[in-house]
Every structure is written in C-alpha cells, then in structure tokens.
Amino acid sequence: MRATDPVRGGGTAGDLAVLDERVAACRACSRLVAWREEVARVRRPAFASWEYWGRPVPGFGPADARMLVIGLAPAAHGGNRTGRMFTGDRSGDVLYAALHAVGLASRPTATSRDDGLVLRGVRVTSPVHCAPPANKPTPAERDACRPWLLNELRLLRPHLRSVVVLGGFGWQAALPALAAAGWDVPRPRPAFGHGVRVDLGGLGLFGCYHVSQRNTFTGLLTPDMLLDVLRAARDAAGLPG
C-alpha cells in the first residue's frame, strides 16, 4: 500500500473511536506489518499463552482529553502484545506510575486492555502505531503514519491544552503535525530538550526524555524529572492533581 493510504482511511473520521478503528486496520508500511505479525506469531516465551494483538496500536484515553502524551512507537512485546499504548512493558510501568502519582490515572500499573485502568483528562498516543524492529522506525515510516497523528490532534483540538512529547523522535514528528492541525509552531522550529516548554498559542508543548529502560536505568530520566514535566503539563491543561 502507498504511504498516503492513511489519509483516505483516517481523513474523514468523525470521532476518535472511528479513527482508532481505522488506525488498527492500517497496513501502509510493509516492513512494520511483517515485523509486528512475525512477533505476534513467534511470541516471547514468557508470553507464550498470550494471543498477541499484532496490529497497529491506537491511542488510549478520553476523547475530551485536555492533555496529550506522545511517545515513539509500541513495544514489540508490550503494546503489540496487549493492544494498548504503553501497556505491558517497562516503559509503560514508568509512565503510568507517574501519571497515577500526579492524579491522571486511576491505577499505577497497566497490564492489559481489560485491567480497569482509566485515564483522567489525558490521552496517550505515538507518531508510529506499529512496533518497529529494534524500536527504530524509519523517517519514511514516521511520515507515512503522520496523518493518523494529525487527525487525532484535530479531533482533540477543542479541548487540548498541553502536550508532552517523550524523546526527540516524537518531537520531530509532533511539530509538523501540530502545525498542520492549526497551532502556531514557531519558525525555526524549537529544538527538543528535557524540560523545554513552548507556547503554541493556547497550547503548552513540553519536552521530556523518553521513559525507555535505557534512560531510566542510567538515570538520564529520574522519577522526579518525569513527575516535574507531567505536573507542569497537567497544570497547564487545567487538570486537577
């Protein structure tokens, strides 16, 4: 399929539920389709009893979210297994514990789509919806997936007041999508950095190191650093703690 197919699939989505269904059916990137399906077929021994999702993973959270967290892509044995963003992997363990700590998640853990987790005023998504080999999508795959993020932003726009972007890859994907969705993104585009805050004319954009194992295990991103960014974005969105 051509890289422009997501526009036809997602461009007329009237609400997030419809968009999420279309995201989950996308087959635009042959390399990612082959990888996610192979992982779902072979499985990790620890999850041999699971029926893997093995499809693109849509965003997770309420349609009237005032805050959005943008990651990178689903993990092969996390979201690609469970079918929900940041669910069932170490990165998700860190993120959801922090969201719970600042009052934006009903529980600190995320294990499956039916675990009862509810997000309060925040939605979680990514610029690439398929698990990529070595956790590294290509720029072409990022660009092919951008229409999904653009449509998600357009649907969230009436309520959205803050965005937290986890990592430089997500930052580079988010800025053009935010601009295309109608926000005033400065030129030249602001550089990514942890703790960076940019005012996009009523929308607060926050940079944060990704919650990857590499960053959290080495101390590049500490729990306090993550909490500081999430609290700032929560407050910018006018959400209660």
Rank of each mutant, 00 (worst) to 15 (best):
T4P: 15
R8S: 15
G9D: 15
G9L: 14
G10H: 08
G10I: 14
L16S: 01
L16E: 00
L16N: 03
A17M: 02
V18F: 02
R22W: 13
A24W: 06
C29D: 06
S30F: 07
S30Y: 04
V33Y: 03
A34C: 05
E37Q: 07
A40G: 09
R41V: 04
P45M: 05
A46C: 09
F47D: 13
F47T: 10
A48M: 01
Y52E: 05
W53F: 00
P56H: 04
P56W: 02
V57L: 00
V57C: 01
V57G: 00
G61W: 02
A63N: 04
D64C: 01
D64N: 01
A65C: 06
R66D: 10
M67F: 11
M67V: 03
M67E: 12
G71M: 01
G71L: 01
A73G: 01
P74G: 04
G79V: 00
G79E: 00
N80C: 06
R84K: 09
F86S: 07
T87Q: 06
G88L: 02
R90E: 05
G92W: 00
G92K: 01
L95C: 01
Y96F: 10
A97R: 06
V102F: 10
V102I: 06
L104K: 07
P108G: 07
T109A: 15
A110Q: 03
T111M: 03
R113I: 07
D115T: 00
L117V: 01
L119K: 05
L119Y: 03
R120A: 12
V124S: 05
V128N: 05
H129W: 07
C130T: 03
A134R: 06
K136G: 03
K136Y: 09
T138V: 11
T138P: 04
E141N: 11
R142F: 11
D143N: 15
A144M: 05
W148N: 02
N151F: 08
H159E: 08
H159F: 10
R161E: 08
S162P: 05
V164E: 09
V164K: 05
V164G: 13
V165K: 11
L166N: 01
L166I: 02
G167F: 03
W171R: 11
Q172F: 09
A174V: 12
A177P: 11
W183K: 08
D184Q: 12
D184A: 12
V185W: 08
P186D: 06
P186E: 06
R187Y: 11
P188Y: 14
R189W: 14
V198M: 04
D199M: 01
D199T: 01
G201A: 00
G204C: 05
F206A: 08
F206T: 11
G207R: 08
G207E: 06
Y209R: 12
H210M: 02
T216G: 04
F217I: 14
F217H: 15
L220N: 15
L220C: 08
L220D: 12
L221V: 09
D224P: 13
M225A: 15
D228C: 15
D228A: 13
L230I: 14
R234Y: 13
